[in-house]
């Protein structure tokens, strides 16, 4: 485990469905400063992956930190990571602790 985020986990989500299928809340300047997964939709890529869970906090997307990013900026970053043809997966660094 790293020193800064000892409980974080890297989850690789393959783009196995046409949607990512997660809902997030939170972002800088809200009560939830880092995005938290609030829903995982059945049949979406995240659900198919089987490793993301409701309640997890997303720390990084493809190695890019979400710290200090407002909700819309974080959501845009995740959406773009899913949309790009450059990769067939999205890497999420998540933690179970808030």
């Amino acid at each position: 485990p790293g020193l800064l985020e000892p409980t974080s986990t890297l989850v690789r989500v393959a783009k196995s469905a046409s949607t990512l299928g997660i809902a997030i809340e939170g972002g800088a300047n809200t009560r939830q400063p880092l995005p938290r997964i609030v829903t995982i939709q059945r049949g979406g890529s995240a659900h198919n992956c089987g490793q993301l869970k409701v309640g997890q906090i997303i720390l990084e997307v493809n190695g890019v930190s979400l710290r200090g990013r407002e909700h819309r900026d974080a959501a845009r970053l995740i959406a773009e990571a899913f949309k790009t043809k450059e990769r067939d997966h999205v890497d999420f660094l998540v933690t179970d602790f808030n």
Partner: peptide, 15 residues
Amino acid sequence: REKRLTLPPSEITLL
């Protein structure tokens, strides 16, 4: 007493 945080709740986005 401890002051409550006054930060607003976040919107939710489906991705």
